[in-house]
């Protein structure tokens, strides 16, 4: 019930400087565009023991197929160059492609946005039989939490054992993250990748700020 609906509309359409091109003139916006990671990266302490980075607007595909169907696994490997990780909680990654085990018949594939459409087409053409391939890019965003205290921050967030013996690099778990959901993958000793729902990105960003308060947080861009 604004007295001046025109002005609020103008405000809504105010120039946005942080749009990022995805492909073919389509534009997208990070769910944390309002936070201003560019500025924060300049302001946050450089020696903080926890670092956070967002990889917004990547391409994500959900693949459902039968790991016992040799034709499907062979087709997947032929297209991506990666063997489908059929062992529970495992992942494989190349320089720009990550494949995470989600369930016995479900995987989450992440690629740069520019490579998404061609990968989706090639997989759709190659896969035969009962399977599904869905573009879920618009629903997800990726955080990378790293640093010597990153594990301590995560201990406040997820109900899984993060000890190296139980959670080595490459392992993937889908779990709850402070009552939101997340797919957590360990990249190395001190680096974790979180795939979260885009609509929860702001909540998780606020939560992570609070959880890392006692250690110090550096935002990277």
């Amino acid at each position: 019930m604004s007295d001046n609906p025109a002005s609020s509309k103008e405000q809504y359409k105010a120039p946005i400087t942080d749009w990022t091109g995805v492909a073919d003139g389509v534009t997208g916006r990070s769910p944390l565009a309002h936070v201003g990671f560019d500025e924060l990266a300049q302001m946050t302490p450089s020696d903080a023991p926890v670092q956070l980075r967002e990889y917004a607007l990547k391409g994500h595909l959900t693949l459902r197929c039968n790991p016992e169907d040799a034709a499907q696994t062979a087709a997947f490997e032929a297209v991506t160059g990666l063997a489908l990780p059929t062992a529970p909680l495992s992942s494989v990654a190349s320089s720009d492609t990550t494949v995470r085990w989600i369930a016995p018949d479900e995987w989450l594939i992440s690629v740069p946005a520019s490579a998404l459409f061609s990968l989706q087409q090639r997989l759709q053409d190659a896969l035969t039989g009962h399977c599904a391939l869905v573009d879920v890019s618009s629903g997800l965003t990726v955080f990378e939490l790293s640093g010597e205290r990153a594990v301590d921050v995560l201990k406040k967030c997820v109900p899984v054992d993060l000890h190296q013996r139980h959670f080595p690099a490459g392992k993937v778990v889908s779990t709850g993250f402070a009552k939101a959901s997340c797919t957590l993958r360990r990249l190395n000793d001190e680096t974790f990748e979180l795939v979260v729902r885009r609509s929860f990105a702001d909540y998780i960003w606020l939560w992570l700020q609070d959880a890392s308060l006692e250690y110090g947080l550096r935002v990277e861009n």
Binding site: P88, L89, P159, T175, G176
Partner: peptide
């Protein structure tokens, strides 16, 4: 039995 490990009840 699908993830082949123990997890907390809240999951």
């Amino acid at each position: 039995p699908h993830c082949a490990e123990h997890r907390d009840e809240e999951e």
